[in-house]
């Protein structure tokens, strides 16, 4: 098993200082693996990912306990900017492209956030266009006028422009056609295979997430309830029924 790169150690988080969202979640993301973070709506997946990038304060939330370690160092209080510089790059839920900027400008912001120079920007831009040829075709379109799938690709591309070492994706399948979802997951899997990119992926679509992930953690009501190899979780019908939106067996009285 490869070494841990991102570790959540009993992380607690709350909004407005009162509404608790995480009750001591522990989770280890290993280098060059795809880790799936599964759970129902409101389980705390988004909160956990935002905590990893220290984005909670911008939404009046905060980490109230526990530690987040990245490459062995405590990064709980690093700024979002510092996280990007260290290669810990988030892709937000709902894509959040800059709608009034062109696709290419959207991508460029990712490189600016990492502090890349002009020559490097041009180079990474070509890599992203190789990965998502559709984006190259629409490079001059305003992001707000492109399709949901193209916006998701632009959001992922924008993250890749920051040359991530660990990629934190929040619901990349949300609101997309099944074929587009497969295309995006295939690309992510390819990146993981070919470049060793580490991925932590929050998903409600557990079927597809478990298909591509190596490892999975299920959280419920802000607590980790299950953890193991993705193939084991996918095989256990009771887990799918209890946590992942499968159909439970009818209860006999």
């Amino acid at each position: 098993m490869s070494q841990p790169v991102l570790e959540f150690d009993h992380v607690y988080a709350a909004y407005n200082g009162a509404i608790a969202a995480l009750h001591g979640v522990s989770l280890t993301v290993r280098k060059s693996e795809i880790t799936a973070l599964l759970g129902a709506n409101g389980a705390g997946k988004t909160t956990l990912l935002k905590a990893a990038s220290n984005l909670l304060p911008a939404g009046r939330g905060q980490i109230t306990g526990g530690r987040i370690r990245y490459k062995g160092r405590d990064v709980t209080t690093d700024t979002p900017h510092a996280h990007i510089r260290n290669g810990l790059v988030p892709v937000l839920e709902g894509r959040r492209c800059f709608k009034t900027l062109s696709i290419e400008e959207n991508l460029t912001t990712g490189a600016i956030g990492r502090g890349l120079e002009r020559a490097q920007i041009a180079q990474v831009l070509e890599q992203v266009y190789d990965l998502f040829p559709k984006l190259k075709l629409r490079r001059n379109s305003l992001a707000g006028l492109t399709s949901g799938g193209e916006q998701q690709m632009a959001a992922i591309g924008r993250g890749l422009m920051a040359r991530p070492e660990v990629f934190l994706l929040d619901e990349p399948s949300m609101g997309l056609a099944p074929l587009v979802v497969v295309e995006i997951f295939e690309t992510l899997a390819r990146l993981n295979r070919e470049t060793g990119l580490t991925i932590l992926l929050a998903e409600q679509n557990s079927a597809i997430a478990l298909k591509y992930a190596h490892h999975a953690t299920v959280i419920e009501n802000g607590r980790s309830v299950l953890d193991g190899p993705a193939s084991d979780l996918a095989a256990r019908a009771d887990i799918r029924a209890l946590y992942l939106g499968g159909t439970p067996e009818p209860v006999r009285i």
Partner: peptide
């Protein structure tokens, strides 16, 4: 460009690492 990104979506700009 960073200015226009911040003007468009502050939270996304923060997440992208813009200051």
């Amino acid at each position: 460009l960073a200015f226009r990104a911040v003007a468009d979506d502050q939270f996304a700009a923060l997440a992208v690492g813009l200051r």
